[in-house]
Nucleic acid binder design. Structure first.
Lengths: 127, 127
DNA sequence: TAAGTGTACTATAACAACTAATACAGTTAC
DNA sequence: GTAACTGTATTAGTTGTTATAGTACACTTA
């Protein structure tokens, strides 16, 4: 499904979380679509199933997936979600990071351009 | 100088890094301004000097401070810096975070508004 | 010279993170 | 009901991180 770096300082389960979040956010994995089973994914990338489970639990706690015993794990449908708290948190993080980027030397124009690019990308998925 | 949470999952030295970075980015601490000495700050917040040193070293590795033996530690002047690599990294992080925010439900308009707010804040410092 | 700077090194204790092995519990299809 | 699949819980061991402490060194300043 994807490539991991077993020597990275970033834990394996977190790498999995990052990859899956990216696929979900970019709409490659659609709402309620089934994720690979814990054991199947573990075998595929040759690591312990518990590591996958930890990744899935983290995804669930972040509101990007849900699991049903005996059935499987699935992409959470954001429509159902309480996202206000998450939005507030990410807005704070975003503002900090924007400030840092401007301090380092990013120009206002470049920042605006980034926003346009990201927004445009999302528009495509609504087709 | 500031308040710490000794019970936080975020290490003490990292809390110090975060606070100081925020002060530097928001221009409260100006370029080449002297930071508190390792021992002074340690005594002030009642922790070990080694912990402060670790924070300062981290700040230095991130390009926000520099130290001179016998003289002290100071805010790094961004003008002198090689920031291209850092800018590229933070741009990648920013794009990811913007995508995530939009996925969660932030609107394009709100995102643009945030950019304007952050930009405006920075303009003030140029007075 | 004395008192202040940053730095390096070692040691230790406590804690958290990570991975692994195993067992348990529910669902589905035959 | 059984087999084969799902997720989940528990335990254990290893490793890495964090914070502290003590000591020593090198440099700067007054």
């Amino acid at each position: 499904m994807f490539q991991l770096d077993l020597r990275s300082r970033l834990p394996i389960y977190m790498q999995i979380v990052e990859k899956l979040k990216e696929l979900i956010i970019n709409n490659v994995l659609k709402p309620d679509e089934q994720l690979p089973s814990v054991r199947a994914l573990a075998q595929q990338i040759a690591i312990n199933p518990n590591t996958i489970q930890k990744a899935y639990r983290e995804l669930e706690s972040q509101g990007y997936a849900y699991s049903i015993v005996g059935r499987g794990s699935f992409v959470y449908d954001i429509q159902h979600g309480e996202t206000n708290e998450k939005l507030e948190k990410i807005k704070v993080s975003l503002e900090k990071m924007m400030s840092e980027a401007l301090y380092i030397g990013l120009t206002n124009e470049e920042l605006l351009q980034m926003v346009e690019n990201v927004s445009a990308k999302r528009e495509d998925y609504h087709d």
